[in-house]
Design a protein around this nucleic acid. Structure first.
Length: 203
DNA sequence: CGGCTGATGATCT
DNA sequence: GATCATCAGCCGG
């Protein structure tokens, strides 16, 4: 691609499903774009997890704080947080203003800016670039400064429709939780090698 | 391939 | 002081 504008069609807030779990499923096959200083980074979303209102595992569950404030914004805003002393996680708020819920982007298939992602991650294998939420954030140069951005508007970080529709979508329990670990709120594109998790979760 | 473990720092109690 | 929506590296089968 040259210097022209990225080709993907931006998501409108009005077309986002209002139900968080439905939204997580719907996001499979959509595209996330970061207009980074080094160039445009884009990937096709292949794995998500829903953290709906009232879910004990949702960061909004215990109420609004400085860290999780973005989760309480209108659906479509991003929520970036730092965890395990090393990793950022990229989420999309999924509820009405003030309600508090979100969808974690767990893995993408790199589409554009792959050479930049390889520099950011220091790995060359395509399937190691953004398979897992921490890796995704690293490959996409996601950091604190991006927290709260409206991903339905023109800007540094936004969501778009894919050019390739989602394939068959699988569902499993969420990964890495101690609370509400039995809810089937993880979604992934079946057979896609960029999906994280163990073999038995990806049936 | 699956299972385990140490690293690492912000956040909240 | 505990917890944490993880990862890379290592080990055994």
């Amino acid at each position: 691609m040259t210097s022209s504008r990225p080709p993907w069609r931006r998501l409108r807030r009005g077309e986002i499903p209002k139900d968080t779990v439905e939204f997580a499923r719907w996001l499979i096959g959509k595209v996330v774009v970061h207009e980074h200083a080094a160039g445009v980074l884009a990937g096709r979303i292949v794995e998500t997890e829903a953290y709906p209102p009232g879910d004990p595992a949702c960061h909004a569950y215990l109420g609004k704080t400085a860290r999780n404030a973005s989760l309480f914004r209108e659906r479509g805003h991003c929520y970036v947080y730092f965890i395990y002393g090393t990793w950022f996680m990229l989420n999309v708020a999924s509820a009405a203003e003030g309600e508090g819920a979100g969808v974690l982007l767990r893995a993408v298939e790199p589409l554009h800016g792959i050479d930049i992602m390889q520099d950011l991650r220091a790995v060359s294998r395509l399937t190691d670039l953004a398979r897992g939420p921490g890796r995704l954030a690293q490959a996409f140069a996601i950091e604190r400064g991006l927290d709260g951005i409206d991903m339905c508007k023109r800007g540094r970080l936004w969501l778009a429709h894919g050019t390739q529709p989602a394939g068959e979508i699988g569902c499993s329990v969420r990964i890495g939780l101690s609370k509400a670990a039995d809810q089937p709120w993880r979604f992934y594109e079946r057979g896609n090698p960029h999906v994280s998790g163990t073999k038995r979760l990806n049936v």
